[in-house]
Design a protein around this nucleic acid. Structure first.
Lengths: 356, 356
DNA sequence: CTGTTAGCGCTTTCAT
DNA sequence: ATGAAAGCGCTAACAG
């Protein structure tokens, strides 16, 4: 497929699309134009000519390169160097503030080091974009993978590449380094905020996903509340979407006869919190007077809701940045420590003392 | 930077990271293992051996490749072929449902043709990821660009590459092909819905962005309402974020003395609509009884709000898919027509007849 | 049917 | 301070 036309000889330059006629100049063209050798061009343009090429010659080379609009051929460079200066980032979905920001952070650090980042939304999502190694993706020097997409790594040749895991929990000894969020601490902050406000009957609307980050949230809520005299914790699990959350919240808000209704809904994510708010309103409960609701993630959504959501802000860009930094270090052969990034409770308008 | 270690000779295989010891096998290794020539390996693995290589030999080759875990070196292939089978997609921001879905659609079609898609969030956003051509990004065969990121194309060498524009309005003659959304029709549907409900005083909360898609929205609202006897259109512009929209909606809802308040807020996007809802509520107005609000885009946000937003659904994945299809055709040297994709009004709970 | 051969454009010794 | 030459791994033309 995609036959470009019958270009069979070398001099029949690849004539696809909007070529202006003159083909892309090579380093040899630059060399000729500057009256030097290809090696000199490479040295100068590669920035390692100091003391090896005269200032005058260097200038001539740069001038010629500029005039010709020369751009090095990456494929050739990659082939020669055996490295591509490109990292692959495996994420579960892009339809998501969090990963978009993680990517942004990673791409920023990558760019600072002359690296690129290509995204691989793992097949868990809708579009089963094929194995990027099998297909014609750019070749890759290393991989940054979200643990929520960890399974996607199985089929990938990634096992042979330097790897950094994101949000996958404490690094296994000998395993890849990780960049984690202090989700336990985040949940602890939420619980304490709620308890401090006076809440004792709390329902946890939990994401029904088997990943470290969610297991920790559940465990922490339970542990933290266990230390509070008189506290009653209930819990509903549901998939990570608004409507499922609405249903779960409805269940939580209609406890069996004889049990009092919870005064706060502690949700595993802002999306879930949005569903919880809708459930509350559909029951005629007012926020935060009749019911407090908390989110987690602090998506843009948190501030778009009404009332604005008390939530836990995740330093998503930092996660990406640290992940890329770690990968870069790995590629340099350095030892890499796993890190845990702090998170912060952002108190807004969806929480208040319970009604008396 | 990133010195992998002093590997200077060919036989000192690149020993970075977690290599198991045996280096990556080349097609020559496969050839040797199968007892054939490199050319035969290439033919077999390239799938163009029918009638040229014996079934037995082909099998031997595939077997050897499998045993060795052979994966072709993309850099070498790209260099040889002069193509990379990779497209660049330039978008204004990833923190956004719409572009995430556009990407998904493009990536799906790309994968079906053995292409990859790499994202370039244009510098307009927060992270000024550098020029992907200057930096060490993978080389690129063509570009798909959102018009909202059109300026980013200037600095990029993209002018020399096959290009498809997204949401940039009718293709200029001789310009790149475009994939557009029928935004005018979408707005028309919104206006008619509102007018049909009985609304006559309508305020347009418009995005303060100079792009075709928004100019069309404004023009269409005005034109459509001009044909309705007794209709009164006011308008407030604001940046594309919730809080700015809240302020703008507030202005729209407090008309100068002597003028009646609009009964509907027609917003250029779901984000703006979210802000409008908050403004309405802060004024004690109830939705949709006292005020109708409409969105545009139908983000996940539309259904997360309460009441759920009447909005215009954009076939984002199709935009990406058609864009990629067009680019692929362009690369094949085929003529490519611009297309306009239909959009649909989704009526939910944020609109109702105006109060009497 | 299969092997030999010639590069793609670049970086890097090594020789001058 | 500069140039000549080799070769990264692959594919495609051509000969056998």
């Amino acid at each position: 497929m995609t036959a470009v036309g019958g270009s069979t000889r070398t001099d029949e330059r690849k004539g696809c699309g909007r070529l202006t006629g003159s083909a892309r100049p090579t380093s040899r063209d630059v060399a000729r134009a500057a009256g030097v050798s290809q090696a000199t061009v490479s040295l100068v343009l590669g920035g390692k000519w100091h003391g090896r090429v005269s200032e005058r010659t260097a200038h001539a080379v740069r001038d010629a390169a500029g005039r010709l609009g020369y751009r090095p051929n990456l494929a050739a460079r990659n082939l020669r160097l055996g490295r591509t200066r490109t990292a692959l980032m495996v994420v579960p979905a892009l339809t998501n503030d969090y990963f978009a920001r993680v990517y942004t952070g990673a791409a920023r650090v990558a760019a600072e080091h002359g690296f690129g980042v290509v995204l691989y939304p793992s097949p868990a999502g809708v579009g089963p974009a094929r194995d990027p190694f099998g297909s014609a993706q750019a070749a890759i020097d290393g991989v940054i993978a979200s643990s929520m997409a960890a399974d996607a790594l199985a089929g990938i040749g990634g096992g042979e590449l330097p790897l950094v895991m994101l949000d996958s929990g404490p690094a296994a000894p000998g395993g890849p380094p990780t960049v984690d969020l202090a989700v336990a601490d985040g949940m602890r902050q939420v619980v304490r905020h709620l308890v401090g406000l006076g809440h004792r009957r709390i329902a946890h609307v939990a994401a029904d996903i088997d990943a470290w980050t969610f297991r920790v949230r559940t465990a922490t809520v339970a542990a933290e509340l266990a230390g509070v005299p008189g506290a009653v914790l209930t819990s509903e699990r549901c998939p990570l979407d608004v409507d499922a959350a609405r249903a779960a919240a409805l269940r939580a808000l209609r406890p069996p006869a004889g049990q009092a209704r919870p005064t706060a809904l502690l949700c595993d994510g802002d999306l879930l919190a949005a569903g919880a708010c809708k459930a509350a309103r559909s029951l005629g409960l007012r926020l935060p007077g009749d019911l407090s609701v908390t989110g987690f993630d602090d998506f843009a959504l948190a501030a778009a809701l009404d009332p604005e959501l008390t939530s836990v802000r995740l330093p998503a860009e930092d996660v990406g940045a640290r992940g890329m930094t770690a990968l870069l270090a790995l590629l340099d052969g350095e030892a890499v420590d796993s890190v845990e990034l702090p998170v912060d409770l952002v108190v807004r308008d969806s929480t208040a003392p319970p009604a008396v």
